[in-house]
């Protein structure tokens, strides 16, 4: 079993583990990046969303082997000093309640805005429908994504 190399938040890392190990466990248990959460374990809730190259993958069902040689970005690596437009908008709108699902929500919203800089409500609903919030913060989430789009536009 050969060790698998990947880039996590800009840093080259090596994981000497079973290639079928869920990426989520590698990030949390091996690399200590506990910002990404375990929710359902079957890609139904979105709490474990991370960026794999440009995509918002569910790390609980993504095998480590899929990340070999690729770039993984977790909530810890989204920006320096939590200054990403989505993070700032989340603070401005006071989105989180319990906060558990928010890393996944933010990672998914960041991917949406990378592809759709000025999303409609429908774009946001479609993009985030797979990210469940038990506290029901959906209205604030949608507002924050719009705000993040404006912030990003101002920064360009």
């Amino acid at each position: 079993m050969a060790a698998i190399e990947l880039t996590v938040n800009g840093e080259r890392r090596t994981a000497d583990l079973d290639p079928a190990t869920p990426l989520l466990w590698v990030l949390r248990d091996e690399f200590g990046l506990t910002g990404t959460k375990f929710g359902c374990g079957i890609a139904q809730c979105g709490a474990c969303t991370v960026r794999l190259d440009g995509d918002a993958v569910r790390s609980c069902v993504t095998p480590l082997s899929r990340a070999a040689g690729r770039r993984v970005t977790t909530i810890e690596g989204l920006s320096e000093g939590k200054r990403h437009a989505v993070q700032q908008a989340w603070l401005d709108e006071q989105v989180p309640q319990c906060g558990y699902c928010q890393p996944g929500q933010i990672m998914c919203a960041a991917v949406l805005l990378a592809h759709v800089p000025d999303p409609t409500d429908a774009d946001i609903d479609d993009a985030l429908a797979g990210n469940i919030c038990r506290c029901g913060t959906y209205v604030r989430i949608r507002r924050a994504v719009h705000r993040a789009a404006l912030l990003a536009k101002e920064r360009r």
């Binding site: 919203a109 949406l112 759709v116 479609d126 797979g130």
Partner: peptide, 29 residues
């Protein structure tokens, strides 16, 4: 589930690609 869409290439919208959840083999879970 999750209101996923076909999109232009049949592989889902940017933040909801099919392969965000579907891997190259069935999951054992």
């Amino acid at each position: 589930d999750m209101n996923v869409r076909r999109a232009a290439d049949g592989r889902g919208t940017p933040a909801a690609r099919c392969t965000n959840c579907h891997q190259t083999a069935n999951s054992p879970a």
